[in-house]
Amino acid sequence: MNNNNMVVMATAAERVFHWMFAISCLLLTLTGFAFLFKNASIAGVFGGFESMKSIHNWLGIVFIISLLMSSAKWLKHPLRFDADDIRWMAVAGGYLSHKVKVPPMGKLNTGQKISYVGVLLSGILLTASGFVLWFFPELKTWFLLSFIAHNLSFLFICIFIPMHIYLGTIGNPGTFQIMTSGRISYKRAKNHYPKWVAEMETGKKVLS
């Protein structure tokens, strides 16, 4: 393949689910903070607290559907872990110093794999607890436990959002287009995702 040929890294469906998830997640976070801190100005944007509650609840449905749909496509990547992942963690993925040698990665690097599983687990916990908060207030103890679980799993999202936005944009020039056009140059793919490219070319799984 020519170095300047483009390869597809994210299909249209993958990109649609990604943005559905991203937008619902950001709006849920914003409205969630408005509830946490009783912020009337944010609530005003959503038509007051009462309608913000409905919006928050229904966005939760968009959130979990898009999360599960994208997981159906992506989950196979984070679930593969090998010796390169251990090495990646040892050098912090090269994010703390540009001098270290970063081991070759597949479609997702180790950090992405870990945070993906984290988002999936906290997303499921957020949805399950949100469901109890929405429909089962009379289950006293479970209701309160769900309230705590909702807030605890939200902490992970609070850490993930700024990190993901940064690493997906200015922190890694050239990656953002994967979620817009879905394509990158063959050369870039070979440089950044060597194991993924090799795997596609040989049609075999590459272990380390």
Partner: peptide
């Protein structure tokens, strides 16, 4: 929750300023 989102956002900016983005190969 507020400290987390604000703290991580600040950390990414510091990273950009002092370590710098991932260099293109």
């Amino acid at each position: 929750s507020l400290i987390s989102i604000g703290g991580v956002a600040a950390a990414t900016l510091l990273h950009y300023a002092f370590v710098g983005p991932h260099k293109d190969k």
